[in-house]
């Protein structure tokens, strides 16, 4: 299955988040995570690609992208964690949940998943201080309700 996967991160994220996928493409998701570790610029490129897909108006595309993000956070190491833990990426998640930006046209399903992921990272990656800072800000602004 690994040999059938496209090469580039761009091609892999397109496959793993294709709105026409009937179910989650776990081979594709794992292939993206593997590839981002192999490339020098893999982590910053991966977070840019993920941010764009997570901001998709197509719910299924966004949900798949959040699943890729979740899976990569579990499977990848410090280089990827550090990129996700920058405001450069976190701001893109904040835009999706904030009514001042994309929040009013985003489904509750997508917004909830983003907040759940961020909360889980505040517990699992307490040294990633910017994640905790961003999450506390969302709580203060009333975006996190429970």
């Amino acid at each position: 299955a690994a040999d059938m996967e496209p090469e580039t991160l761009e091609a892999r994220i397109n496959k793993a988040t294709n709105p026409l996928n009937k179910d989650l493409d776990w081979d594709g998701i794992n292939a993206f995570c593997e590839q981002l570790n192999k490339e020098l610029e893999g982590p910053p490129l991966a977070t840019r690609l993920l941010a764009h897909k997570i901001q998709s108006p197509q719910e299924w595309e966004a949900i798949q992208a959040l699943t890729v993000l979740e899976s990569c956070m579990k499977g990848c190491g410090k280089r990827f964690h550090d990129e996700v833990g920058k405001f450069r990426f976190l701001n893109e998640l904040i835009k999706v949940v904030s009514p001042k930006y994309l929040g009013s046209r985003t489904s509750e399903k997508v917004k909830s998943k983003i907040l759940e992921l961020m909360y889980s990272w505040t517990l699992g990656l307490p040294h990633e201080l910017k994640i905790s800072e961003a999450y506390q800000m969302l709580k203060k602004q009333g975006i996190v309700k429970c």
């Binding site: 910053p44 920058k86 405001f87 450069r88 701001n91 904040i94 930006y101 800000m137 975006i143």
Partner: peptide, 15 residues
């Protein structure tokens, strides 16, 4: 484009 040891970042978005 980011260099290999790029530690630069933006500010937290103010919502």
């Amino acid at each position: 484009t980011a260099s290999f040891h790029d530690d630069s970042d933006e500010d937290l978005l103010n919502i």
